[in-house]
Design a protein around this nucleic acid. Structure first.
Lengths: 342, 342
DNA sequence: GTAGCTTTCGGTAACGTTCCCGATAACGTT
DNA sequence: AACGTTATCGGGAACGTTACCGAAAGCTAC
């Protein structure tokens, strides 16, 4: 037995489909008695409106497309949780796509989302995306888009990110204040906005304390933990006394590489990550981190997008919403003299 | 401008929609010249068939519904990656739903997936699900369903899980062989199948070595790291010399609780988890784990489901596919005398 | 030269739903 | 008594696509 339709109800009750439709939507022009009949019958046979038929008819779907580089990343899955919670409570369904850090896959998934008539898109750009014209096209076709985390200034859209500058500034300042002078910065490929913001925060902190900005201490690493190790090894030749890693994977990869080389943390080098892993204080040593409010970013992004979809906010009103970060100092970035106290 | 449809092409080329449709599907009964015209025009205006219209017409959607308790869990996100890879290459799209370990949410999401005309369902049961009649109903309506990880014997479906019994047996045996005698087992609520399988493996290993099975050493914990701590504290009163945690969250929660109580690992108690976290060897101490092949479970489950959907496998042919686990011994379960060697 | 075949296309219904336009009564108004 | 109003319902089209049925034109074959 397949699902019951409005036609089945109409046939069974000797009514027309339009009457049944109106009865179910509680239209004023239907006799209360008829309404009762229809509603009861529908309830008895567990009638559910077919969302596909509705999508076809109304050219909308009550679906939000979410495109992230990777689901298997605690940061993104927490963002998705935030998106999910808000969408759910406002009557939208979420479809998740992964770009796998590939520009081509991002293009494909965006097309799929559009084909599925998603009412709006929530996107964190892939690491290899440097051209956002595919998104600009969609925006010109009036498709609501909100970017989060990995945003781009080349697109006039609403963006929701962590306060990367302030977070990076605080992390760097913390390292400087705990006596570090040669602070390496490990970050992700550079088109992505967050890279530049964090780099700017790092640089601003150096400047504040009169430290030189040494390009040899900046390294870009591709994604994936395995790619981090050679970069870290390479950086060690510059004899840094601290690492500031600009991302989740980077921080863990950095930690793993340093441990493999038997570099003492925090005695030899200090380490602080820009991340969101819940196990940071279970690591060896417990890792200092700048925490991004992933859940909140997801919630805010979803709220903004749905406001956009429902016309509560005007389209093409770009802007940047920054959610504050929180620095958590743990053992990995203690000043050397203080280690025993911890 | 909205997306171009078959009608637009027909109008522009002075053809009928049926001709255009057939031309695009490369039907033999269309003049090659006409075909060329249509295909070129479609390519030029970037025509994409509307999947919603197709779903409505064919009562299928090329969509697989995946229902997991939580996305923000490395195990599940890896499974999803496996599902995603296979589905993608076989032309299916994946829609992910979260049950948030709630039976009610599971019911709801299943209904949504069905309403969206998912061609099949891939489900890992929620922790509070003890009744699977909602799934049995769907199965009787010929909807292909494959369970993974958290499966139920009350449903005659294909199941894909890790080899929980063998994995738990190996973990317990390893603890025994490294000199532990009072091995606590921390596990999740008991309706779920994996609980029972792992418990059975644990018990079998005890029996093999003539150790008593002490129910006081078995504890069930709800999900969420915060819920683990009181359970661990309670267990410590039974003076165990080892912990075998049956899940991702449990192992981490256990580690956190033990560290908080300053219980030395592995000197005082040994710890081994049944988990999938990529940071296990970065923890303090590096945590021994029984690794579940999450990616492979996802791949196999997706393959089985798609075979089912495409009729390559007969329906209602229940079975259990067990994917081997792999035990990785790290410092947290070293015999006390050996610690310094590591 | 007529029957039958092939080639190539068009028309229409159908999937489930909503919305617009009527239609039919019963009723009230003047 | 003629007309407008209200309450209640049905019919049809439309969303994009495909499948079935048919139909015209040209051809072959007897």
């Amino acid at each position: 037995m397949d699902a019951i339709t409005i036609k089945d109800i109409a046939r069974a009750l000797n009514l027309s489909t339009s009457t049944v439709s109106r009865a179910l939507r509680d239209s004023y022009e239907i006799n209360p008695e008829t309404k009762r009949l229809v509603v009861e019958y529908a309830a008895r046979f567990n009638y559910r409106p077919n969302p596909i038929a509705l999508s076809l008819k109304e050219n909308r779907s009550r679906v939000i497309g979410v495109i992230v580089p990777q689901i298997a990343n605690n940061y993104f899955s927490q963002v998705i949780n935030g998106i999910d919670a808000v969408s759910y409570s406002r009557g939208y369904q979420v479809i998740i796509f992964q770009s796998h850090e590939s520009y081509e896959r991002e293009l494909l998934t965006v097309q799929q989302a559009v084909a599925r008539k998603a009412d709006g898109l929530l996107i964190s750009l892939s690491g290899s995306t440097s051209d956002v014209s595919h998104l600009r096209d969609l925006q010109e076709r009036k498709l609501p888009i909100v970017l989060f985390d990995r945003v781009s200034k080349d697109l006039d859209s609403l963006c929701v990110t962590a306060d990367n500058f302030t977070g990076a500034f605080a992390a760097t300042e913390h390292l400087i204040q705990s006596g570090r002078r040669r602070i390496a910065h490990l970050t992700i490929p550079s088109y992505i906005s967050i890279t530049q913001e964090r780099l700017a925060g790092y640089r601003a902190a150096l400047e504040k304390y009169g430290l030189p900005y040494d390009e040899n201490l900046i390294r870009y690493s591709e994604f994936g933990q395995n790619n981090v190790e050679p970069v870290v090894n390479d950086l060690l030749d510059q004899s840094p006394d601290a690492f500031f890693a600009a991302g989740d994977r980077l921080a863990l990869g950095c930690l793993a590489a340093l441990k493999k080389r038997n570099v003492a943390i925090p005695e030899a080098v200090s380490l602080i990550g820009f991340t969101n892993t819940p196990v940071a204080d279970l690591l060896a040593p417990p890792m200092s981190t700048v925490e991004q409010p992933a859940l909140e970013i997801g919630q805010v992004a979803a709220e903004q997008l749905i406001d956009l979809i429902e016309g509560k906010r005007k389209l093409a009103q770009p802007g940047m919403i920054r959610i504050p970060t929180r620095m958590i100092v743990r053992e990995s970035s203690q000043p050397v003299g203080n280690i025993l106290q911890v």
